[in-house]
Amino acid sequence: MGKDLRELLLAFKNGELDINEIEKLIKLNYFEEIGTELKLDINREFRTGVPEVVYGRGKSIDEIINSTLKLAENNGVALATKIENIEKLCDEIRKMDLKNYEVKINKRAKTLIIKNKNYKIKKIGKVGILTAGTSDIAVAEEAKDTLEVMGVETITSYDVGVAGIHRLFPALKTMIEKDVSCVIVVAGMEGTLPSVVASMIDVPVIGVPTSTSYGIKITPLLTMLHSCSPGIAVVNIDNGFGAGVFAGLIVRRCYRSHGVK
């Protein structure tokens, strides 16, 4: 597993590395190259608070697995999203000897999480995740898996959209009781659920429009962007990963302000 910049600087301070060694290691510690096409940013989490994630669309199964394994080797845990042929990935993973790793494949979200068994994810905070319908669950699960690798607990309630608005209220009550730092709301069709949620709670709402629709797919995005309820931030269509990252950073900042690193 690679060292982060803090560890390298401490080694230099303690006289374990000279100036030339520290310079070389800092340069090497920022990327890991696989073949001639893949260059992994293994130190992204140290800089930004978010580890590099493997975007699976357009990549071969071998590229996805090799990249995710290399990131897990260096960072302890890694996530791949938007995997196009999830069944083939399952078949290839079954053939591999990964006894030192914990592997989680989410077929609905089309995600892969690989974690070194010796790596402990530090747990901080809670985020609520709501979906308007069951067709939105795949995007919500992508957000959930993103938050999992960031160490954030999720409280989920699915299929609570405006078509049956009475289903929403118990879910919101539970999330407020469990003191979530923000709520991710995933909705397609006309995309009104984030506005309704934001009008009822005092925590930030992250709207995620989905491509679930009978008509024009951009409609839920425009609805969320034009919301009259304040307190909503909106990510792009089907971007569960982006919503998860945004929510995770909110949680980390909340806990850091209370002295938790």
Rank of each mutant, 00 (worst) to 15 (best):
K70D: 06
N14R: 15
P220A: 04
V53F: 00
L193M: 08
I65Q: 04
G244Y: 02
L112K: 07
V54I: 15
I237K: 05
E73F: 04
A140V: 13
V260D: 03
G215A: 09
D62W: 05
A233G: 11
K110A: 14
G231Q: 04
D238A: 12
I218R: 01
L9W: 00
K110E: 13
V260W: 04
K107L: 15
N43V: 05
L28F: 11
G231V: 06
Y214R: 09
L79T: 13
M224S: 05
I26M: 08
K107W: 09
A80E: 10
C182A: 13
T111E: 04
E21L: 12
L147R: 03
G191C: 10
M175N: 11
V50K: 00
I34F: 06
R256V: 02
T131D: 03
N29V: 06
K110Y: 02
L249T: 07
I218T: 10
E52P: 07
L71A: 11
I61K: 14
E142T: 15
I176T: 10
K70A: 15
V245C: 08
D202K: 10
D136G: 12
E45D: 09
G76V: 13
A247R: 02
D4H: 11
A138M: 03
T36G: 07
K117L: 05
K70M: 14
V251P: 05
I34V: 06
P204Q: 03
G188F: 02
T81Y: 03
I64Y: 08
N106Q: 15
P220L: 01
L38Y: 02
G242Q: 11
I237V: 14
K3F: 03
G244D: 04
L10S: 13
V50A: 00
K82T: 10
T111D: 10
N75P: 08
I65Y: 05
K115M: 07
I86W: 00
V235R: 02
V160S: 06
Y214G: 11
G191V: 10
S195A: 14
S211T: 09
G58L: 04
P204R: 03
I121C: 08
E52N: 09
Y101D: 06
A132S: 10
V197G: 10
G259L: 05
I34A: 04
V160T: 11
K178C: 09
A80S: 15
I83Q: 14
Y214S: 12
L79C: 10
S229E: 04
V234H: 01
G2F: 05
M96T: 09
G49F: 00
S199Q: 07
L8V: 13
K117Y: 01
G242V: 11
K107S: 14
K110I: 13
I184Q: 06
E177K: 14
